[in-house]
Design a protein around this nucleic acid. Structure first.
Length: 154
DNA sequence: GCCAACGTTGGC
DNA sequence: GCCAACGTTGGC
């Protein structure tokens, strides 16, 4: 059982979008970074904990708790010529990009990035490190526990 | 819209 | 295999 922080741009898929989808789940398509891909392909398992993070928006931060609901499978968008995620070097025989499905557990009152930065317990979190751009990062179980038990209020 | 950080590309 | 140029991310 592992824990992850996964960034989504709410203009693309927000926590409310996720809540409205069938099974409240979504294919985590569009990851085009090898390190993030490898996390999904090689390390994620069904049931892993996910912090659903809103990035590139007015108030970035953690918007919900979710879970990994499938193992990794080829990202369909890599074959879609009309998609910005199309990859001409990918074939069904040799897919290059993978994704898991992520399912909502619960929406939470937003924990903003600026609030996260106030907690010394979280200072080692990768998402808080300067210059970090990875859209998927592993979370230390202590960080997961701190966020989901101390910071989530409702 | 700025720009720092950093990943990728491609010439050599 | 180096590394400069370029593109992207994402907070501010």
């Amino acid at each position: 059982m592992r824990y992850w922080l996964m960034k989504s741009e709410p203009a693309d898929v927000s926590i409310d979008d996720l809540a409205s989808f069938p099974d409240q789940s979504v294919a985590w398509y569009g990851v085009r970074n090898y390190q993030a891909r490898n996390f999904m392909r090689d390390q994620m398992a069904i049931g892993d904990g996910v912090l659903f993070y809103h990035s590139n928006c007015k108030i970035p931060g953690i918007a919900g708790i979710a879970r990994v609901s499938t193992t990794a499978y080829p990202d369909a968008k890599q074959y879609d010529q009309t998609s910005k995620y199309f990859d001409e070097k990918a074939t069904p025989e040799q897919p290059r990009w993978f994704n898991v499905d992520v399912q909502l557990v619960k929406k939470i009152p937003l924990i903003s990035l600026s609030e996260l930065r106030l907690h010394p317990e979280l200072e080692r979190m990768r998402t808080l490190q300067q210059g970090n751009r990875l859209s998927i990062t592993p979370l230390d179980p202590l960080e997961w526990n701190y966020i989901t038990t101390v910071l989530v209020r409702d």
